[in-house]
Design a protein around this nucleic acid. Sequence first.
DNA 1: CTTGCAAACTTAAACGTTTAAGCATATTTT
DNA 2: AAAATATGCTTAAACGTTTAAGTTTGCAAG
Lengths: 339, 339
Amino acid sequence: MKKVSLKDIATEAGVSTALVSYVLTNKDKKARIGEEMAKKIREIARKLNYQPNHIARSLKSGRSFTIGLIVADISNPFFANIARTIEDEAKKHNYNVIFGSSDENVDKSQDLINVLVNRQVDGLIITPTEGSEQQILQLKEQKIPFVLIDRFFPEIPASYIAVNNRESAATAVSHLIKLGRKRIGMVAYKTTLHHISERIGGYQDALQQHDIKASNSLLKKARYSHLKEDIRLAIDQLLKGKQPADAIFFATNSLAIEGLKYINTLGIRIPDDLAVITFDEGEALDLFYAPVTFVRQPILEIGKAAVRVLLEQILDHTTATTAICIDTTLVVRKSCGSR
Amino acid sequence: MKKVSLKDIATEAGVSTALVSYVLTNKDKKARIGEEMAKKIREIARKLNYQPNHIARSLKSGRSFTIGLIVADISNPFFANIARTIEDEAKKHNYNVIFGSSDENVDKSQDLINVLVNRQVDGLIITPTEGSEQQILQLKEQKIPFVLIDRFFPEIPASYIAVNNRESAATAVSHLIKLGRKRIGMVAYKTTLHHISERIGGYQDALQQHDIKASNSLLKKARYSHLKEDIRLAIDQLLKGKQPADAIFFATNSLAIEGLKYINTLGIRIPDDLAVITFDEGEALDLFYAPVTFVRQPILEIGKAAVRVLLEQILDHTTATTAICIDTTLVVRKSCGSR
DNA sequence: CTTGCAAACTTAAACGTTTAAGCATATTTT
DNA sequence: AAAATATGCTTAAACGTTTAAGTTTGCAAG
């Protein structure tokens, strides 16, 4: 049950493999192949159910028509959906996706990059983890096409697709202020990653803009690796003082979900006792009894842009970088109450 | 910035590429390579940062060290987590994963199979969609190694990893009965897929076992393609009659989430007015104000088993099929109340 | 001193494509 | 009629590996 190759078709048709190749790659005009012969070859190919060997083709062309995708956490619906759109979009261009999840771990990320590059992917789409600057720089040096998504390093020139985190965060927090909330807390990740810093910056911008002085005691950071414990501590500190927060802005959906799980156990009512707003969506936030108001990142657009920019880099063989910043939408629901 | 090949190393060392190959694939003993030469070659390889070309290797060996994964819906956390464990597990064996989401669509599934097979994956892990029997049969005929997960076709002998759906469903429903629920509804997908039939069967088994007569008016089915509408209708019918259901068993997490979203809007309180139990977990079900009691499928185990069985098939070059049925756990939380 | 054999390497073919270049034969142009 | 061009196909090399088979040299055994 060997797979049929060009040679099999050639033998059957009594011609050379070259001829078959020309026909089946539709270069028959250019290569001046006789019409009947072309027809005959096509028929035999169909009869034998010929499927081109992609690997041989890749070896010859030096291109694998595969892109590598490294997400930070595939079990996060945000990344799962990004992965899906990227896979769909890639397929439209006859590209496949090999993926891996770095779990926000810099070593795993390096591992994945190595594996994918060894597999001769034509390019990479990466959510860089904290501390992965060297990896990105190395990719640049090796001239391997890549696009960063979700995050990027401002000091490293590279193509990326991101949202305007700062403005989006500011809009979200302003929304809370306009609804009369006075003591607005924020829960973010403890990380140097730029997108989180920007979201924090936006939070502070909004406060300042409304002449509310930002208090350090209202800005909490949780470690990715110790999410549950750190979130509990943060929420406790935010809500159990003499002047408890009357609103919390979560920097990501995973923070919001973990936070709300804990808040649920405290008997605190949303939005009466506490307003909640977050970055990113998620089914959990829809199903919550007070559906959570959130900043929607346009996942489809991000995925499409990532593939487009990457393919441009691959095809044009260029080293120029493209940075794309996409706007978000604030989706208002019940979790912040109303005036 | 061309990539360095065996030839580059060979030139640098003044030897043939064969020698380099033997050394770098650690066949130097077997091929009686001189120790110093081996050392020299290894050093040069390191110096030039040689990375083997996986594609050339694949072409030669006829194996790609890649497995194709087709899930039904990557945005469902169940499948996203399966995907992750499969990817992790595959990597442990030096395999990579190319994935795609069929979205429960039989044409898309065929499409993905074609693409992946063309890419010369060494084997496939598939969640078969409804009506994909022909695709599976064809894979068998082509002797392409594959393993089904989550579902399978009882009339088609093939390797698969599944859970004991019938017993698990029966356990779940029995749990409701033991807590005193009398009119237990079920919401399933409208599909001929075996795992769903089994879950329905288990539901009926449990009722019968406790001498409750199963009523057709309590068994509702929703189309995957019209989930929202069908679920609304189903819930309405279950809850708005003269004898409303006092418990609902959802056949999957997506059904439960969609159902609960609607139930939320009806002002029905869980578990007081209605007990809820479901197959599969999900963050949304954790965050729900009455965390939902559910049947846990051991995702890690499923993923590991799938990779193991597939690799056995690939390596042993066997056509024997392995069917694995794994037990589930009922995770009891608040959504069914208590005596 | 020849045969035998082990050691250390090289040669060459193969995997399945692609594609530039080559070679007849036929047809058109001058 | 010779020269140029067109047509239809073949040859052969290349992509980067792997690996069976072959070659050379040295050395011990007969």
